[in-house]
Amino acid sequence: MKILVTAKRVTDPDSKIVIKPDGSLDLDGVDFRMNYFCEIAVEEALRIQENLDDVEVVAVAIGDEEATKEVRTALAMGADRGILVECDEAKLDSDLVARILVKVVEEEEPDLIIMGKQAVDGDNNQVGQLLAEYLGWPQATFAYKVELEGETAAKVQREVDGGVETVHLTFPAVITTDLRLNEPRYASLPGIMKAKRKKLDVFEPDDFDIELEQKVEVVGYKAPPSRQAGVTVDSVDALLDKLANEAKVI
């Protein structure tokens, strides 16, 4: 069985993103790391690998050369092989990422794709669904629990509005991860050493005959409206007075 996982490079959620006066983003000095939802995807694939014989886990990233680091991180966690599709991330949108992944899937023919439900930079939450539709595959987004039925199907519990929904998928299929699916492992030192010797193939969109034509384009960035801090009250009574007489909400 083969599982394809994604390892997207994103800005560290703890880094502050500064918007320049011209409306572009200042990413100098910002730290990068693997998208947390992708880490959960890698972890889930490795757990499946530990429970079954002969499971190969292939990690793929799409981005500039620096994204090699995130593929190596996935390899250090335990993935077997890596793929980087090298291109200028600023020229991508969700649809292009999905269409590049379609090509990778056609090459690799995985039984299962596990990926983050969204990347914590663009927050689009589209790629898994687009990929599944382009491939004509079933999907389980926002996975909370994945139970394999042999190597050909799975029951997936999903985080939905108002509870947890269960769907049954026949492979090949796409699963996207939500927060509670698992707690991703850290790469061990031997894992990091081993990762350096694992195979990592690099492609370019040209290799797949894909033109980088964006369907969705970001034309500018701005800071969200700031909210003025209000007043400090010194007692419950003062708070109740404000809520009743000033805000008029109770």
Binding site: N124, V216, V218, Y221
Partner: peptide
């Protein structure tokens, strides 16, 4: 093409843009 999680629709006629939160709401993208 799809714009996800749109919070505002700007412009008119054939020149529309959409505002949507990115980076966990720290940035609004147009």
């Amino acid at each position: 093409g799809q714009a996800s999680d749109v919070v505002a629709i700007n412009g008119s006629g054939g020149a529309l843009t959409y505002t949507r939160p990115m980076w966990a709401g720290n940035v609004l993208g147009e």
